[in-house]
Design a protein around this nucleic acid. Structure first.
Lengths: 212, 212
DNA sequence: AATTCACTGTAACAATTGTTACGTCTCTAA
DNA sequence: TTAGAGACGTAACAATTGTTACAGTGAATT
């Protein structure tokens, strides 16, 4: 674990902190589509991504509708978790492995110690908050100012970007779930995007040529 | 200023920190509807509310449409600002005095010192992040899962709550701006809410009996 | 008193989004 | 090989939201 940590984080954290992480942290791996953490779960550990990608979702309390908020990637941590850790509240969000994902879990109390002790950790934590707040703002902009077609195209390019491939494997129904829309609407708009030459449709697969 | 700070924050911060705040902080006051901070402004100070209320807005880059995100009240600070301070980025949001508002501005570098130095400040900062992240989540839920009528009624009750009065002084056009909708739609839905007995309409004034 | 202007109500229509229904296709498992 | 299930396309219609247009009302000003 020390080796992987050094690989990923040697330019982010000082050697001493990385060693401490390796000795205290708990290595975990998750298969695609595994729920890593759900709404209402209480949180005692903070996840730090080593490889893979996690999607963060929100759920409608009433009808169970879902909404994709943003992705976490290597080097990211979950700011929502930071808070839950510090205040011992429950998780407000659902975290699902988008692909095969490795991470280390770090116990809460260490988190606070390190903020006082390590300059690099402090910077990392605040940068995480910043990134997350900005991702939330982006999600809000997207919902408030874009129509469903724009949201859909953004969803596709984001997903291709995360997969590092123009071909994304997903059904229309899945997309509808993550955008809190309905399958028919998504199919309709996908057809429109195809007619406009922006994507190509196949069974269980969508080509998004210009995703970067 | 020391006196006001003690009044508002004696149970939040230790005496020594409050004294330091009073000697370093810069007292400012703003009339209703004054822009305290705009999108793109660079930020050197962190605001800490003494009285009043501030609304935090987001703007569409393309057509200038606005959206109300949430309110700051006494005891709150702006987590977005915390980040801007630490990373020296520009403001992503607009802050407008909802009513007459007093605050003290604290220079960036002190913020960081205090995180290391004062336990109470550290807790305060992280609680602020938590509150703000939750407000953002609430805004996202509202946009993703509620229709315009629900968003409108929530807007009215929130606004009445901030004003501590069932009578809110606002035009239909203003509401439309803050919800990124159009005046005609808002008038239509307000009429519906009135027919349903939830509110009463007057010129420039709306009664919201059950706002608490 | 007359004029002006912002505010409100409403109609008519357009565009977008959601819903229901049904047919076709592909894959898998019995 | 066949039955069943999930995936996709599309039509028809409903509901919501947005747009344009216009009329009336009240308040302030001239």
């Amino acid at each position: 674990m020390l080796k992987i940590l050094k690989e990923r984080y040697q330019y982010v954290f000082e050697a001493k902190l990385i060693e401490e992480m390796a000795s205290i942290g708990n290595y975990r791996k998750f298969k695609e589509d595994t729920i890593i953490m759900d709404i209402g779960d209480s949180i005692e550990y903070m996840p730090l991504l080593l490889s893979g990608s996690i999607k963060i979702m929100r759920e409608d309390e009433e009808d169970g509708g879902e909404l994709l908020l943003y992705y976490l990637e290597v080097g990211d941590t979950c700011a929502m978790t930071l808070n839950c850790c510090l205040r011992k509240t429950k998780s407000q969000i659902r975290a699902v492995a988008e692909i095969y994902t490795e991470l280390i879990m770090i116990p809460v109390h260490k988190m606070v110690d390190w903020i006082i002790q390590y300059e690099t950790w402090r910077v990392f934590v605040f940068e995480s908050y910043n990134t997350r707040l900005n991702e939330m703002l982006e999600a809000i902009d997207n919902l408030a100012f874009n129509n469903t077609e724009e949201r859909l195209y953004k969803y596709l390019t984001d997903k291709a970007f995360i997969a590092k491939s123009p071909n994304i494997i997903v059904t229309h129904f899945q997309i509808a779930s993550e955008l809190n829309s309905s399958r028919v609407v998504i199919s309709r708009l996908l057809k429109k995007l195809e007619r406009d030459g922006k994507i190509k449709l196949h069974r269980n697969l969508i080509e998004v040529p210009n995703y970067y």
